[in-house]
Design a protein around this nucleic acid. Structure first.
Lengths: 126, 126, 126, 126
DNA sequence: GTGGTCTAGACCACC
DNA sequence: GTGGTCTAGACCACA
């Protein structure tokens, strides 16, 4: 798996997002073992310390769990994962709505803009 | 005008947004004189260097213009302002749509989520 | 017997404490045979290596004794057991007193806090 | 100020405790500026990264606040500081009481042991 | 100057 | 082998 890091954002945050995405899409299941710090670092071509930090932050968020000498695992609590999804979508929506409001865009326009963006995507995907 | 800065984002970016918002809402008109660096710094209770940087960036974007010895002005070109609005809204939309897609949210759900968020806002604003 | 391990402390230390507690409460008597490494590991659902290490440390402290081919036994010397108790309580007291002192808590308050904690425990135990 | 680090505990935790103690004893006041990462590292003869980590953790606990380019400050919220003190004393008490209970020490004995430890301290201090 | 991030390399405790 | 911590040294964004 190739990942190109955006130089404008901390790499450790991008690693967190990368793993979260894998959990969301089911590539990583509840309770499944995560790759080791060293392996992930090799795969992502970053420093192990950076990966370590990303995983530790995920742990603080309750999404990962470390077991000494045994590696790290995705949390067993499905609730935590649902919570993560909810938080992410809430954040996306509120950023969008409040940003558009500041631009003076009406509600109808917002909905129309989203719809046309979606159609455009479909066109490109073909 | 009271402005609370988000400590997780560069202040100069937040100052740029603050001024852009004023242009969009018409509080600052096309070609109108902008407050001086010193005044803005006093009003926003920030370091003048930070304000300076924000205004310089706005100049780079073509939204502000400096006239030596006379201060800075909002650009006269209406086109620039329209462009700014368009860019901002495009960015907001694409961040929203691609983010939601990654979460596995369907198109219908996206529209519904936006709608319900808008209704909630109205409720709170009362 | 169910034991939940605190993930912030070495498991082998927790196993040592677990066994010490059993000796103190009399569930394990002076000179009694200790369960085998394999059995303990199965009971506690841990790695046998970890149990092995815990028992070795107990040996070093003079609390357990190994007899080749016959397993491990709680020491026969009652003195050793008393010593263990004394050490543990001394450590607990000095950690408590010096910690509270650093917090600026007066002697009277310390005693009162302990008393109220004890009463609360009784309430919960009901 | 000389500080000797206990090699059995993470240094960054000890730095956290060191600063907390200074806040508790009033050597650092609410809202006061903390020494910079580099200065503290020099003073404590440790690596700046280690200090950085300690301060970041304090921030997560709400005890310190960072302002970009301006340094770090003790939180302005007195409530947070009180909370910190309460947490620390609660932890000390429950560790003591539950530890003693496991040793089979009665309530009266606990209180007596604390009292005699306090008297001994006074004797030594003379 | 100040905090934030990153790399490289090392050592330790634990399993 | 696995996670956790630490050092040394560097670069960047920010004020």
């Amino acid at each position: 798996m190739k990942v190109a890091f955006d130089p404008n954002m901390p790499i450790y945050i991008q690693i967190m997002d990368f793993i979260k995405k894998q959990i969301i899409t089911g590539q990583l299941q509840q309770g499944e073992k995560l790759p080791s710090v060293r392996d992930l670092a090799a795969e992502l071509q970053t420093n192990p310390n950076t990966v370590q930090r990303a995983l530790q932050e995920l742990e603080r968020e309750g999404i990962a769990e470390a077991r000494r000498g045994m590696g790290r695992y995705v949390t067993h609590e499905g609730e935590k994962i649902m919570e993560m999804k909810r938080d992410m979508s809430k954040e996306l929506i509120s950023a969008f709505v409040s940003g558009m409001e500041a631009l003076g865009v009406s509600e109808e326009e917002m909905l129309m803009l989203v719809q046309s963006a979606l159609e455009q995507r479909k066109g490109e995907a073909r």
